[in-house]
Nucleic acid binder design. Structure first.
Length: 256
DNA sequence: ATGGCAGCTTCGAGCTGA
């Protein structure tokens, strides 16, 4: 069973690229972020063989969960403690025996701004919910754009990113705390603590061609799911295509 | 340190992203 996460950077404008990737890699579950629309191409995805639940908003943010040959059962939209006017950054569904949370964490730049404070607050809500999910003992995957590079290994030039909201020690500490609590970083677990692997490359300055990338899209697995982890990867060949998102899809393969 | 690119939007310059 393959669970993937893909920040599409505009689900309607990117639809052809999304359909191409689905047909090429056939993930069982695909978590999408940055839909950037309050309309969702459910019909086209259905014709491609994917059922979907989505939580969109106009212009910005937006998350969705796709399931190949199945209809995801939505279990929640938004995190506990959010107001009704909150940005569309979290959706959760039961899919093929796994509880899947799809997230799009705030960017938070610049450091010290109200947006940065909102990112910290969002992570507090997310961590509380993750703790509750872990306590259930169920198979859970939390997949999405975390907007955190967890360590220096996840940044092509760490010194250039020290002042960025995606690379603050207090945010890296929050990510580390999730791992300490029992969540397994599927991609890092498979690649090991020595190999560089990125999921995002800026559109600027030929970043992809230079492999000047960041690892900010992650799939965290609860212990019972982590026990089934077989492999993981990043579909960087799709980042190389014309008209690609600035993120590449990342995935884990689970036994069964 | 700056600026570079791309997608969105009351249609086009400004906001956001990372």
């Amino acid at each position: 069973m393959r669970i993937a996460t893909f920040n599409v950077n505009g689900v309607n404008g990117r639809l052809e690229r999304l359909l191409d990737w689905l047909a090429d890699t056939k993930p069982d579950v695909a978590c999408l972020q940055e839909l950037k629309s309050d309309s969702f191409p459910a019909r086209a995805l259905e014709q491609a063989g994917y059922g979907a639940v989505w939580h969109g908003q106009k212009s910005w943010n937006g998350v969705a969960i796709l399931a190949r040959g199945a209809a995801p059962i939505e279990t929640r939209r938004g995190l506990p403690g959010e107001g009704s006017g909150a940005q569309a950054r979290y959706i959760e569904a039961a899919v093929k025996g796994v509880l899947v949370g799809c997230l799009y964490a705030p960017n938070g730049n610049p450091v010290g701004s109200a947006r940065y404070a909102a990112k910290l607050a969002w992570y507090d809500r997310f961590a509380a919910h993750a703790e509750a999910l872990l306590a259930t003992g169920q198979p859970v995957a939390l997949a999405g754009d975390y907007n955190i590079m967890p360590t220096d290994l996840d940044v092509y030039a760490p010194e250039r990113w020290r002042g960025d909201a995606l690379f603050q020690p207090e945010l890296k500490a929050r990510y580390a705390a999730l791992r300490d609590a029992g969540w397994v970083d599927g991609i890092r677990d498979v690649f090991g603590e020595g190999e560089r692997v990125y999921t995002f490359w800026k559109y600027w300055r030929n970043a992809f061609q230079r492999d000047a990338g960041l690892r900010i899209d992650h799939v965290l697995l609860s212990p019972v799911l982590a026990a089934r982890l077989e492999s993981a990867g990043v579909d960087s060949h799709h980042r190389a295509k014309a008209g690609a998102s600035d993120h590449a899809p990342a995935w884990v393969e689970l036994e069964g």
